[in-house]
């Protein structure tokens, strides 16, 4: 059996027998392995969890952080919820759009970076919050955007 399979079994062992609690960690693992939750990724996860692919698919589509479409190697998530928006998150995301030459929700042509507008990231006191590959940057302003993009491996 594959390493992925073994890893999932190790996760399953942390939860009561027969529970499906390993579903989220396993899907996350599959996503790390494949880049996104492709049909194959979902089928592998389902097999390792002993559930149907439809079950995994159903769960995956519920959660924002699980991607059912290909995404860039890196993700930039810009919080656009109220506290950040009150402090100008719109200008920050516009700065990312022009820096990357794409709209929110899109991936750069070279497949490197996906830019997304997201809901509250839990850093409201330090608006605008931007998560680059899930690492938070606080108090981002339009002016600091080029620096952030430049700091990404292979960034444009």
């Amino acid at each position: 059996m594959s390493r992925f399979h073994d890893e999932v079994q190790a996760i399953r062992a942390r939860y009561p027998e027969g529970s499906r609690s390993a579903a989220l960690p396993a899907l996350r693992l599959a996503q790390e392995k494949h880049g996104w939750l492709s049909r194959q990724a979902i089928e592998e996860t389902a097999e390792a969890l002993d559930v149907t692919p439809a079950f995994c698919y159903s769960v995956a589509t519920f959660y924002d952080m699980l991607h059912l479409e290909p995404v860039g190697k890196h993700t930039i998530d810009v919080c656009t919820n109220l506290p950040c928006a009150l402090c100008g998150a719109q200008r920050v995301i516009e700065a990312f759009e022009s820096e990357l030459g794409i709209h929110a929700g899109e991936t750069t042509e070279d497949g490197e970076i996906t830019l997304r507008a997201v809901e509250c990231l839990g850093g409201c006191g330090y608006a605008t919050v931007v998560a680059v590959d899930d690492r938070y940057h606080h108090s981002v302003r339009a002016e600091t955007v080029p620096e952030i993009v430049g700091g990404i491996d292979g960034g444009t």
């Binding site: 149907t52 439809a54 698919y57 159903s58 589509t61 519920f62």
Partner: peptide
Amino acid sequence: EDVSEDGQLVAANRGAMSVITTFE
């Protein structure tokens, strides 16, 4: 899920966009 236990007909997405579907 709970009667035939075939686990094939599921809900996808959430909120207003929720739909009933099979896999792929």
